[in-house]
Computed example of a mutant assay.
Amino acid sequence: MLWTVPLVALVSLAVFALAAASPTDAAAAFLGARDEFTGGAARERVEQLVAGTRWFDAWWGWVSGMPTGDLGVSTTARTPVVDVVAGRLPWTLLLMVLGLGVGALAAVPLALLAARSPRGVVARVLTSGLWALSAVPAFVVAMGLVAVLALGLGWLPTGGLTDPGAPVGPGQVGRHLVLPVLSVALAQVPWITLHLFRAMTVQLHSPATAAARLRGVPERRVLTRHVLPPAAVPTLAIAGARLPEVVAGSVLVEEIFSWPGLGQSLVAAALAQDFALLATATVLLTVVAVLGGLLADLCLVRIDPRTDPDGL
């Protein structure tokens, strides 16, 4: 927790420096369609407004306002950054939690299926397919799902939070959430399944498993009671280190599906050099990854009392 403070400071400093070095035209992004109708003097005033402050001074002003909750005003949303974050962060967390949860739920039966015969044809085909899927970026998986399930079959909407003009409700949100959640989940299934399968193959040859089989315990119960729980411990330990990947994948998925989360704001802020919103969104996603890793470590210590907390 203490290391999070200097980490956040360094991340935010890097964001301001990299955004200032970006070749994007902040004034054009701010003006949008009005850019071609704006005169030279007016455009110069806009440039002074959105990009006239040195990046270090802008960073210091942003940091100075953090203790009072003043994170500045977003030039892309034309509203205070706090309001943008309050409206978008819950949707990002919903997508990440559901995507990771669905991925974990799908990985367990796949790992159990492969572990029944680790050297069999099913295990070989399954692991090969998962290795291939792990090499596909999350945004490619998302576009493939759109092409098949939305454009090809017409079963699901292509994006957004609701249908045009429809009120925000559980039915509308749930229907529009299916494809983004599947995209995030499919990016997580390969590594969860492969790590779990490898740990289960080790547990299959453990003394506890051999003793259970000698007592006549059915093979299905051996897998679910004597193999799966110990195998989940190293997988959970790796999950904390993989959370930044979940965050990065969710950001890309949000942009593809026009999901109203922080990821979409992050892309728009980067293109427009919206320093305040860009830094705030990046720092919040960094904190989510750090706290998620901490939660994974705490769960690991809770599940396995043999774990040394100082060694994590």
Rank of each mutant, 00 (worst) to 15 (best):
V184F: 03
V15S: 13
A231V: 03
P157R: 13
A106D: 10
P244Q: 04
T158V: 11
A27H: 05
P234Y: 06
R306K: 12
V227P: 07
L110Y: 07
L10C: 15
M143Y: 13
P305C: 09
W60F: 06
L98V: 15
S128R: 09
V50M: 09
R116T: 10
A272Q: 02
Q172K: 01
L31S: 10
A269D: 11
D274C: 10
A138H: 13
G103H: 08
V85Q: 03
S206T: 15
A269K: 12
G169K: 00
L179D: 06
A239S: 11
H176Q: 02
V173E: 01
L2N: 13
L284Q: 04
L312W: 04
R124L: 06
L295Y: 10
Q48R: 15
L278H: 09
V85G: 04
L177T: 14
V82F: 03
L196C: 05
G65H: 11
G159H: 09
C299N: 06
G32Y: 04
L7N: 14
A115F: 04
V217F: 07
A138R: 03
D35Y: 15
S128A: 15
V168M: 02
A232P: 01
V184Q: 06
D57W: 06
P234H: 07
V189L: 12
V85I: 14
G99C: 01
V283D: 12
L149I: 00
R88A: 14
V247H: 06
L130G: 11
A187S: 15
D163N: 04
F275L: 13
I238N: 08
R124C: 05
